[in-house]
């Protein structure tokens, strides 16, 4: 078991990278939100791996907080997406750029 710690960490890095690239590359805001979930999950995996490695509880408790933050983030984000959709605009992040102007 203990020999697998590097595997867990490399997997966590890989999942985080795929999620980050998803945020950067995709234009559908729903997929972008799912990629953010992917990144948070990868961070959770690293946290729990280190909690097991150092035999402390801090990582597990912190992962619990991350899950709570992710849940509330999804709720607010999806409410925003439905608001944008209801205002008649296309759900495309390249076109939803007027906020920056």
């Amino acid at each position: 078991m203990t020999g697998l710690f590097p595997g867990f960490l490399i997997l966590s890095a890989g999942l985080f990278s795929v999620g980050a690239v998803g945020v950067l590359v995709r234009r559908n805001p729903l997929v972008v939100f799912m990629s953010i979930e992917l990144m948070l999950n990868a961070a959770n995996l690293a946290l729990i791996t280190f909690a097991r490695y150092t035999q402390t509880m801090a990582g597990q408790v912190f992962a619990l907080f991350v899950i709570a933050v992710a849940a509330s983030e999804v709720v607010v984000g999806l409410a925003l997406i439905t608001g944008v959709y209801r205002s008649g605009r296309r759900l495309d992040l390249d076109e939803l750029s007027e906020m920056s102007e």
Binding site: L15, V18, G22, L38
Partner: peptide, 8 residues
Amino acid sequence: FLGALGVV
């Protein structure tokens, strides 16, 4: 990992 690739 396949799931993550599938998402993107």
